[in-house]
Amino acid sequence: MSTWRGDDRSVSGAAARVSGAASPPVRMRDALLRNTAFRAGLVLVGLLVTLALLGPIVARHDPYTSDFVGGITSENLPVGPSAEYWLGTDRIFRDVFARLATGARISLAIGIAATAIATCVGTVVGVLAGWYEGRALDTVLMRLVDVGLAFPFLLIVMALGAALDRTTATTILLTLGLTGWLGVARMVRAKTLQVRNLDFVVAARALGQSTWRILAKHVLPNVAGPVVVIATLLVAQMILAESVLSYLGAGISPPTPTWGHMLLEGQDYLTAAPWISGAPAAAILVAVLGFNLLGDGLRDVLDPRKT
């Protein structure tokens, strides 16, 4: 975010033509804060971050321990939301709030880390393919992306999950990160093709600057705007993918609380204890919606042509 704003100022004329964002940082911040979608996204993501940071600290119970005294009703059912258990207890009488908050940490960490991996790989591949358009490197890389996009990744991620006896957060974030870069690469390549023929890049080449220097100093800063947008939207996709995997039983192994698995556990208690599924469902919705709104707002401000 900050890197591309800084570079934007130094090449503001060219950046205006490429990403449509010529405003200095302050004006852009104001434009963002005036954007309804961005503001709403900021609030939702803020809620989520607060839950992840403070939730496990303020929770009154341990997320892994069953409470067979206070967390159980006389009919052997989980208790509903109360002052003691803010979001009730789950099917084996653990604190739903504590599990939700711990799950938030995991979801956010995986979402952001996997996005970072996918964005880095995708940007490098996209810039290289775009710069060497039509050459062998471009052909090979883009064919790879084509095959990748047709590949049923869910199946492979699940196969890995099933094969490894214990799946950890690291496994999941690496798999998601290393499979998520395809779309980024395509978008960055298209953007690089535009930037490549702009005057200042042509001038830099004429001056005899090395390819790597041009890519790093001129191309990269100018594709950064759209990359920030797509990365924000990607965080939502990654959080979603993590919860789908754990819902399908191929995510991080229990008893680690994940939103997807909490949802699955509550599915048989939809009438008796709707809060077990309801809490993680709401959390996933807030997370995905929040990052989508942030991304939409960023796009509106960075690329006014799209609105």
Partner: peptide, 15 residues
């Protein structure tokens, strides 16, 4: 429509 795009399939399904 923003809500619909963001709502995960299994959340909608369970609802």
């Amino acid at each position: 429509s923003m809500l619909g795009v963001s709502a995960p399939t299994f959340v909608i399904g369970l609802f």
